[in-house]
C-alpha cells in the first residue's frame, strides 16, 4: 500500500474512535494493521510521520498517554492553520 493511502486509512481509523475511546499508539498499529494487512512497523512509521507534522498528536489524561486528532486550537497554536 502507498504511504499516503496508509496515512488516510490511519486518519479514518482515528476518526472512527474520536470521542469514543482513547487510543494508544499501539492500538493504532494493531487496529490499522489488521484492517489493511500492513505490518505494524510500517503503520507505526506512518503514524509517527503524521504526528511529526501535526496531522495527529499525542495527548495525556487520567494518568495515561494517547493519540488524537488535533483540535483547530492546537493547529493554530502550532502555526499549522
Amino acid at each position: 500500500m502507498e504511504k499516503e493511502e496508509l496515512k488516510n486509512k490511519i486518519f479514518e481509523y482515528m476518526q472512527k474512535y474520536k470521542g469514543k475511546k482513547k487510543l494508544k499508539e499501539k492500538d493504532v498499529w494493531k487496529g490499522v494493521g489488521e484492517e489493511t494487512g500492513v505490518p505494524g512497523d510500517e503503520v507505526k512509521k506512518a503514524l509517527r510521520e503524521m504526528i511529526d507534522v501535526g496531522k495527529l498528536m499525542y495527548s495525556y489524561g487520567g494518568g495515561a498517554s494517547s493519540v488524537e486528532i488535533p483540535s483547530e486550537e492546537y493547529l493554530k497554536e502550532k502555526g499549522l492553520l
Binding site: 504526528i51 511529526d52 507534522v53 501535526g54 498528536m57 499525542y58 495527548s59 495525556y60 489524561g61 487520567g62 498517554s65 488524537e68 488535533p70 483540535s71 492546537y74 502550532k78
Partner: peptide
C-alpha cells in the same frame, strides 16, 4: 493537570 500540551512530534516532557 493533563490535557494537550507539548511540542510537535513529542508526546512528553511538558506536563499541562
Amino acid at each position: 493537570h493533563g490535557g494537550i500540551v507539548g511540542v510537535l512530534g513529542y508526546g512528553g516532557g511538558v506536563i499541562g
